[in-house]
Structure formats: C-alpha cells, structure tokens
Computed example of a mutant assay.
Amino acid sequence: MTGKSEPDDWEREFDLRWADAAEHKEPSARARMLAARWKNSPPGPVPFRADPDRVARRRSPWMSTVVVLGCVALVIVLLGYAQTRT
C-alpha cells in the first residue's frame, strides 16, 4: 500500500452544482449535428397541430371494452366445452 489515500467514490462523484455553474456549456452532439445540417439546408415550417383531415378517427373506448370482454367470454365458453368433452 502506498501512503497516499485513494479518494473514495463519494469524492470522485461528479458534482452537478459545479457543472451547472459553468459559464460555457457545450451543446450536445445532437444539437451540433442539427446545427451543421440546418446551416446548409434549414428545415421547412412545421404546423403546430396536425391537419384535421389527416387525423385518423379514433374508436370509441367502449368498443375496446366490448372486444376484450367478448374474448374473455369466448375463452370461458371454450374451456367449459373442453371440460365437458373429457
């Protein structure tokens, strides 16, 4: 063993307050990639909401419930039929 004491994990842990206090923050790799891509060809405008004509019509939540309960009832009937056959 050497006379130097090794720093424990707690002392080596990254201090987030120290990082947040940094004057210069480097952008993420994705931000740098998008900035380079958009420098040559900026993206077109994107609407805030989707076009109402393109939105698919959603099913009623009751329809899903009926389908699930129907499947459960079918399984119960099939298991009952299988039990009577044996």
Rank of each mutant, 00 (worst) to 15 (best):
A82D: 07
V66H: 00
A73R: 00
A29R: 11
G3H: 05
L79H: 02
E23Y: 04
E11F: 11
P7E: 13
S41N: 12
A19F: 15
G70F: 00
K25L: 15
N40Y: 09
P42T: 08
R54W: 02
D51Y: 01
V68P: 00
T84P: 00
D53P: 00
R49W: 05
R12E: 13
S41A: 12
A29S: 07
Y81L: 15
S64W: 08
K4C: 14
R54N: 05
E23L: 13
A31M: 05
Q83F: 07
P7L: 15
M33C: 06
S60T: 07
S5A: 14
E11M: 13
R57T: 07
R30M: 11
K39Q: 12
L16Y: 05
A56I: 04
K25E: 12
W18L: 12
P43Q: 10
A56M: 04
V67K: 06
E6S: 10
E23P: 04
A22I: 03
T2H: 02
E11W: 11
P52I: 04
P61Y: 02
M33T: 12
F48W: 01
V55M: 03
K4E: 14
R58C: 01
W38V: 08
R49E: 09
D51H: 09
T65E: 06
V66E: 01
W62F: 01
T86Y: 07
N40K: 11
P52T: 04
V75W: 03
A82S: 14
N40R: 10
W18E: 15
S5T: 14
R17C: 02
E6I: 09
A82L: 15
L78Y: 01
V66N: 01
R58A: 14
D20C: 03
P43A: 13
P52W: 01
P7H: 07
Y81T: 15
R57V: 10
E11T: 15
V75S: 07
R57M: 02
R58V: 10
V55E: 02
R32E: 15
W18V: 13
N40W: 08
W38G: 06
D20K: 08
D51T: 01
N40I: 09
V77D: 03
E26I: 10
P45M: 01
S60C: 06
R37N: 12
A50G: 09
W10C: 01
A22H: 08
A36L: 13
P27H: 04
A56V: 08
N40A: 14
P61E: 05
T86R: 11
K4D: 14
P7V: 13
A22R: 12
R85I: 14
T2C: 11
N40C: 04
A50R: 07
S41Y: 04
A73W: 05
A50E: 10
R57D: 03
L69W: 10
L69S: 11
R59E: 05
S41D: 12
A50K: 03
R30D: 13
V68G: 02
P27F: 03
V77Y: 02
A50F: 03
R85C: 05
V46Q: 07
K25V: 15
A21K: 12
E23C: 03
A36Y: 10
M1H: 06
A35N: 14
D15Q: 09
R30Y: 07
G44V: 07
R49V: 11
A73H: 01
S41G: 09
M63K: 06
S60Q: 04
G70P: 02
R12N: 12
E13A: 15
P27N: 06
R59P: 00
A56N: 02
A73C: 11
